[in-house]
Design a protein around this nucleic acid. Structure first.
Lengths: 232, 232
DNA sequence: TAGTGGTCTAGACCACGGG
DNA sequence: CCGTGGTCTAGACCACTAG
């Protein structure tokens, strides 16, 4: 683990332990350097991490301060780690598991038209369906996949099992009305609102490894985003 | 302007000029150092900026590469600069301009219940309404506001006119059905889908200066997000 | 004006990718 | 193994905030 990640974790623990809230000030960078026995840029990297995660913000000439904390029950739209870890009592039903070529629009996203694992899943939280998911994983990149894996966290499998690092993603979103077949799975009515997301994920080497269409149940999903313009 | 911003701009121009596309490699960091006559960390800061903007990605031991470019007509959900600059032929109708105390939930976001400028606006793109906006700006922070300013870009006014820097934001989003009064403004039917966003913006010193409720027309708005897990 | 974060440099060494 | 990006340091100087 990198030094700045360790320091970032320690600072996070410090915030929790001392019950710091919005506007509370962290120790100065000089103090943190002494405290953790590292150079200035290491502290800056750690604080950059926490800034990107929406935990703190910096004010030049003044200090580093704690941001308001997010609320429960909201899913991050932008976090590439997926949201499996913030769900309460999540379950996943695999509706279809096959090998096929993706439809045209998804081929563009994947920059390829090769055969993929196709997985259609319905994901629930506390028994309530919140997203219907259709994903394509190119077999050349994800050499093995099974229905059992798809019933758990596919991203955890890719990270921990295949030791591949997920780095960035492109998302295109719109709101629309549900079609009858989607409504059935999501336990809603045809014509009800939904959020549709086309999502392409890339590995650390820039290869797209997953292109998905997600349709969210409007009653069982809400989202948050805490962004920051900070650099280093 | 900071050195790393200048370098970032130059690299961006380089990408455009040489028509680099997804997967194309930039010059090495060493070459960029020589080319622009700056130190390594300045190049790294510039590349960090471009990474955060979703323009490039880094692969350790290999190089810096260009990301797929975003598509036209999609608005950024996470960009704090607002989206005035990417809209085609935007117009704004001020529906209500008043001074009042915000309702309870927004007081929580603003950490205050003081009197605010209240502005209700309907924003159009090529004549088509795409968002209905209700915003509160605390008078102690935004000392002056007018209907005329509200008919243009409020954020530009705050940045350029008031010389205040917008730094980060909290967004809470969900999809729901339109109410009759909202539908009328957005030229849709009651019960049609919409995206509702509660958005609080903060200045560089951490003060919340704007808490808004946005209701998007599902036919006239679509969104994108290009995120990246990269640090420095 | 003192203190704090921000920028920038030079340089040492590490870790990874690919031939 | 070489070349590339990644981490980390020490230190100089700048820019902003707040008393």
């Amino acid at each position: 683990m990198k030094k700045y990640e360790l320091v970032a974790d320690k600072i996070k623990v410090y915030i929790t332990k001392n019950k710091l809230h919005h506007g509370d000030k962290l120790p100065t960078i000089t103090e943190l350097m002494k405290e953790y026995q590292v150079g200035k840029s290491t502290i800056l990297q750690a604080i950059t991490l926490l800034t990107q995660r929406g935990i703190v913000y910096k004010v030049q000439g003044s200090g580093v301060f704690v941001r308001p904390t997010g609320r429960d029950g909201y899913m991050s739209l932008t976090d590439n780690a997926g949201f499996a870890h913030v769900l309460k009592d999540p379950t996943t039903e695999v509706i279809e598991f096959a090998e096929k070529r993706p439809p045209k629009p998804l081929c563009d996203y994947l920059h390829s038209d090769e055969v993929c694992y196709f997985i259609k899943r319905l994901r629930r939280q506390e028994g309530k369906p919140f997203v219907l998911e259709e994903s394509y994983y190119p077999k050349s990149i994800i050499p093995f996949m099974s229905k059992e894996i798809a019933e758990g966290s596919i991203f955890d499998y890719i990270k921990d099992g295949l030791k591949k690092e997920i780095r960035f993603s492109d998302k295109y979103m719109r709101v629309r009305k549900l079609r009858a077949d989607e409504a059935k799975y999501l336990e809603l009515e045809e014509g009800d609102p939904c959020l549709e997301v086309y999502d392409t994920f890339y590995l650390a080497n820039g290869t797209p490894f997953d292109s998905s269409k997600l349709v969210y149940n409007y009653q069982n999903s809400k989202f948050y985003d805490q962004s920051s313009d900070d650099i280093i």
